[in-house]
Design a protein around this nucleic acid. Structure first.
Length: 586
RNA sequence: GGCCCCGUGGUCAAGCGGUUAAGACAUCGCCCUUUCACGGCGGAGACAUGGGUUCGAUUCCCGUCGGGGUCACCA
């Protein structure tokens, strides 16, 4: 604010000599001299332009929602990429709002302009969109918003905060503080030396004890100042609070005269939180548990502001094991902390959400098993069943969820998603997928039955999974043929030639196809059944499985593939022959 | 350091005074008329610790230890 005092006029001719009943300045004093000011005069002097709070009370009526509807929000600062923890919060918030026919809104907390980052808002909005977590209200682009309780960007709510700050000053519940940051620093050192609790409170709160006249005088002379909350709390008293997740907690009362309006005229988090969540009708504040210890302050603020406080749900952060120590997933150190990481890796949005739901409610897993095909929007999340301590992030489990999620997709969906990812991250894969009809066949292998394959956990696995089905890639690489038991060149040649000349017929059904491989094995002196092979040690050098392996390796250059019958069908006679020829040449 | 929260297998977690202490992921073994995957069956693996309270504590209380959070004109 650092504004010049404009109070001289008010000092000499107070606009409001009549004092409201509540004013702590006795009437008699006012009668004695016009110089004597009251809190309201002080408030007028500091925020001459600010509206009366009744204006905002009318502008933002209480929401008319059905009983039990939860109004909640995601309220990030635009300071960089969205953290997985933020996504977790949003997911929970959105589910809860949807389940109760409430409202989920997005509010941008940009009161710290130093930390703000370019495209910060856009980033947040896009990340939410990527995960299907669009808010019902709030910011929808860098500059646009929807909903009747805006602005949803705190930097645009300055006048609202000032109106409430003015109201607090007029009530004698807030005051200007003229201490400089350096003085604050000194104070802390002094307290440290004296081994007392640090902070601006009680006797240490120098400016709290200034008279109104002294305050006015300083403002008038142009001293810069901030606004502090005049806490009525006492540290030796306890407050009890019931957190929706953490349960009963007990804290000492807040007695800190925290800053509510900073030197730049913008509010601090605490004050903005109280004003916004009241005006926006938030019923449940879902936030990280690093805020738990601020609850006494926030409750006090709501009370002194005359607001009904919301409920709080403090969720445990997602942690990471760092050399045996648990620590929060860090934006700086851990790539998996950024939600963009999951998109880059091609982990499906559904998988990330399912994994997060898994952490949120252990009942999710059972629900999923009972309802394998239902959409997660049908799962009823119970916030009070959430874990109180932070879970270690488990990539292996996430990937397992990813496999299951993708295994349920149709070939069409797999194709679309893989292509979408390839367009952003893998040109080579994108080219492979150009032939949609063919690719659909490839993705259709062992898909759609009751026991679908689970070999794709993320879209970045796809290329490695299917490349041998595409000639352009298959032939462009120098292949090794990792034959196993049967690895004699002549034998291999014999098997391949005999198979293609005498046995393979693309019109065979699977049983006939399989029987023919047995026949082939028998003809060349191998055991037709594995069992027979095992029962007669020494009689055979190899069995039908080993013969199959030769075919498989020659065909794909791999020992592990999905169903070979289907692969052969897709490849077709000509390409099989060609691949065999190539294998023999090597 | 003060204040606060938390502590069940490797991980996520049910259980909250009497249980053979669930389940999932990971791991190991077996089975699934050829591999892999899927699936099935089975194995190994846990109540941090010391005191209480109680006929009986994983469950309740206190201490210890361990982990985390918070003590800004940052959110």
């Amino acid at each position: 604010m650092r504004q010049k005092g404009t109070g001289l006029f008010c000092l000499i001719f107070p606009k409001n000599v009549k004092v409201r009943k509540k004013s702590p300045v006795p009437k008699i004093l006012i009668l004695i001299g016009v110089i004597i000011m009251n809190y309201k005069d002080l408030a007028d002097m500091i925020f001459p332009e600010a509206k009366d709070i009744s204006y905002y009370e009318e502008k933002y009526p209480r929401r008319n929602l059905k009983e039990g509807a939860i109004v909640t929000r995601f309220a990030p600062s635009p300071t960089g990429f969205v953290h997985i923890g933020g996504l977790y919060q949003s997911l929970i918030a959105k589910k809860l709002a949807n389940q109760t026919e409430g409202v989920f809104f997005l509010r941008i907390e940009d009161t710290d302009q130093k930390r703000e980052v370019e495209n910060g808002v856009e980033n947040i909005i896009n990340s939410l969109k990527d995960f299907g977590l669009e808010p019902d209200e709030g910011m929808i682009s860098e500059t646009e918003e929807k909903g009747k309780y805006g602005p949803y960007k705190q930097s645009e709510r300055k006048e609202i905060y000032q109106a409430y700050a003015k109201y607090m000053i007029a009530q004698g519940k807030a005051y200007p503080c003229f201490c400089t940051p350096e003085e604050g620093e000194e104070l802390r050192k002094k307290q440290e030396a004296a081994k007392v609790r640090p902070g601006y409170y009680g006797v240490w709160a120098k400016c709290r004890h200034l008279t109104i006249e002294e305050m006015a005088e300083k403002i008038k002379s142009g001293e810069s100042y901030i606004i502090r909350f005049k806490s009525p709390g006492r540290e030796d008293r306890k407050i009890k609070h019931k957190d929706v997740i953490k349960g009963n907690v007990e804290f000492p009362e807040n007695d800190q005269d925290i800053v509510i309006i900073k030197a730049d005229g913008l509010p601090t988090y605490h004050f903005a939180h109280a004003v916004d969540d009241y005006l926006m009708g938030t019923t449940l504040v879902i936030r990280g548990d690093e805020w738990l210890s601020s609850v006494p302050l926030h409750l006090q603020l709501f009370y002194e502001l005359g607001f009904k406080a919301p409920k709080y749900a403090h969720i445990a952060p997602i942690m990471k094991n760092d050399n045996g120590n648990k620590r929060k997933l860090s934006k700086r150190k851990d790539e998996e902390a950024a939600v963009s990481y999951y998109e880059e890796q091609g982990i499906p949005e559904e998988a990330v959400k399912e994994y997060l739901l898994n952490i949120a409610n252990s009942t999710f897993e059972n629900w999923r098993r009972a309802n394998p095909d239902k959409d997660i929007s049908e799962f009823q999340l119970q916030i009070n069943k959430m874990s109180v301590s932070g879970a270690l992030f488990d990539m292996v489990k996430l990937l397992d969820v990813g496999k299951t999620v993708i295994s349920k997709f149709t070939a069409e969906k797999v194709y679309e998603e893989a292509l979408k990812w390839a367009k952003r991250h893998d040109e080579e894969l994108e080219k492979l997928l150009e032939n949609k009809e063919y690719s659909l066949k490839v993705f259709g292998i062992e898909r759609g039955n009751k026991k679908p394959r689970k070999d794709i956990a993320k879209w970045s696995d796809v290329k490695d999974n299917i490349e041998y089905m595409y000639d352009e890639l298959f032939y462009s690489k120098k292949q090794d043929y990792p034959y196993q038991t049967i690895n004699d060149k002549n034998e291999i040649e014999k098997i391949l030639n005999l198979y293609i000349e005498k046995y393979y017929d693309e019109n065979d059904d699977k049983q006939v196809w399989f029987d023919k491989i047995k026949e082939l094995s028998g003809e060349l002196g191998y055991a037709k059944e594995v069992k027979e092979f095992k029962e007669n040690p020494g009689k055979y050098t190899a069995h039908v499985g080993d013969v199959s392996t030769v075919l498989r390796v020659a065909l794909t250059s791999r020992t592990n593939t999905p169903d070979m019958y289907e692969i052969m069908k897709i490849l077709g006679n000509k390409r099989i022959e060609e691949r065999f020829r190539k294998a023999i040449e090597c």
